[in-house]
Computed example of a mutant assay.
Amino acid sequence: MDLLRSMEAFVLTVKTGSFAASAISLNTSPQMIAKYVVFLEDYLGLKLLNRTTRSQKLTEFGKQYYEKCLFILDEVKSSKTLAQKFIEEPKGRLRISAPVSYGHFNLISVLSRFMRCYPKVNVDLQLSDRYVDLVKDDFDIVFRIGELSNSSYIARKLNSYKLIFAASPTYLAKNGIPATPNDIKKHQCLIYQYVNPTKKDYLWPFSVNGKVINIPISGSLKSNDTLALANAAVEGLGITMLPQSMLSELIHQNKLFPILQDFLPPAREVHLLYKSDKQQLPKLKMFIEFITNSM
Rank of each mutant, 00 (worst) to 15 (best):
P243T: 09
I24K: 14
L127N: 11
V195P: 07
Y194P: 01
H271V: 03
N231D: 07
F86H: 09
Y192S: 07
F39I: 02
L4T: 15
L272T: 03
L49N: 06
L190S: 03
I288W: 07
E249K: 00
D42L: 03
L272N: 00
K185T: 11
N254T: 10
K80V: 07
Q31H: 13
L227I: 08
H271M: 01
I288K: 00
V142F: 04
F71Y: 14
T198Y: 13
N106Y: 13
P258N: 08
I96C: 00
V121D: 01
L26Y: 10
I96Q: 02
D129M: 10
K57F: 08
S101R: 00
K91F: 06
L12I: 06
P30G: 06
M32Y: 12
N209Y: 12
S220C: 11
S112T: 08
I213N: 09
F10P: 03
I177S: 08
F114I: 05
V110N: 06
K57I: 08
L70G: 11
T28R: 03
L203G: 03
G45P: 04
V270R: 02
A232L: 04
G236L: 05
Q244M: 11
A228D: 12
E249N: 01
K185N: 10
F39S: 12
L26P: 02
V234I: 15
L148M: 10
Q84W: 01
T13N: 11
K35T: 08
G62T: 05
T13V: 09
D225N: 13
F263S: 03
M286Y: 12
E67S: 08
G238Q: 04
R113H: 11
P181K: 09
S160V: 08
L48M: 01
V270M: 05
S109V: 06
L250H: 07
A20E: 12
K283Q: 03
T292E: 15
Y194L: 06
E289T: 09
A9V: 02
I288L: 01
E41N: 07
T53D: 14
R5P: 05
Q193V: 08
D74E: 14
N209C: 05
P197W: 04
V270C: 09
S18H: 05
A233H: 02
T170I: 14
Y36V: 03
S128Y: 09
V208T: 07
K174E: 15
F86I: 04
S22M: 01
C69A: 13
V123K: 04
F105E: 10
I184M: 05
Y131P: 03
A20P: 00
K283I: 02
N224W: 02
I215W: 13
R95C: 01
A20N: 08
N293V: 02
V195N: 11
S149A: 13
N231Q: 06
T81Q: 13
I251C: 01
K63D: 15
C189H: 09
P99H: 06
K162W: 00
S151R: 12
G17T: 10
L3G: 02
L125E: 05
F143I: 04
F71C: 07
D225K: 05
Q64A: 12
P197C: 06
I164V: 10
L82S: 12
L281C: 01
P169S: 10
S294R: 09
F19R: 00
S109A: 10
S55V: 05
V14H: 05
G210N: 08
K199L: 10
K285D: 14
S78P: 02
C189G: 02
A179E: 11
L58I: 03
K68R: 13
